[in-house]
Simulated assay, not measured.
Amino acid sequence: MVEQRAPHLVVLTGAGISAESGIQTFRAADGLWADHPIEEVATPEAWRRHPERVLRFYDARRDQVRRARPNAAHQALARLERHGFRVSIVTQNIDDLHERAGSRHVLHLHGEILKARSSVDPRLRYPLPRGGIRLGDVCDKGSQLRPDVVWFGEAVPHFVDACEIAASADLLLVVGTSLAVMPAASLLEHAPLDTPCVLVDPEANALAPPGVTRIGQPAGQGVPTLVRHWQREGRLWLPETLVGAAT
Rank of each mutant, 00 (worst) to 15 (best):
V149M: 06
E20G: 08
I23Y: 01
P51Q: 10
L9T: 08
R49Y: 09
I215C: 10
R125C: 14
E40W: 03
D63Q: 14
A60M: 04
A162E: 02
A60H: 03
C163L: 11
R104T: 15
E99I: 01
D63K: 07
W230I: 10
N71S: 00
R5S: 14
A204C: 12
H98P: 11
P157Y: 09
P209E: 10
H83R: 15
G136C: 11
V87G: 10
E164K: 09
R134Y: 04
Q92D: 05
I94C: 08
E112G: 05
H229S: 11
R53V: 14
P147Q: 13
R214S: 13
T91I: 05
L77C: 09
I133R: 05
A180I: 04
Q217K: 14
N93P: 11
H83E: 15
L179R: 03
G244K: 10
L114P: 01
G136S: 07
P70G: 05
V2N: 11
G153I: 01
G31I: 06
V10A: 09
V65M: 07
P218N: 11
P122Q: 14
P209N: 06
F57I: 08
A73E: 03
V138S: 00
V174D: 09
V120R: 13
L77A: 10
R82D: 15
M182F: 13
R123Y: 00
E112P: 06
A72Q: 13
H110P: 03
G31W: 12
R146I: 14
V223G: 02
I165K: 03
R27A: 03
V156Y: 01
W33Q: 04
A6C: 05
H74K: 01
T247N: 14
I113Y: 03
G84L: 03
D201N: 15
V41R: 14
D63W: 01
L173Q: 06
R130L: 13
F57Y: 15
L242N: 04
G84V: 05
V243W: 07
R5N: 14
A184W: 04
Q92C: 10
E40F: 05
G14C: 05
V54P: 05
V11W: 12
G102P: 07
T225F: 06
V106W: 07
H105M: 06
S21G: 09
Q64K: 00
S178F: 05
H110N: 12
H83T: 05
W47V: 11
Q217W: 15
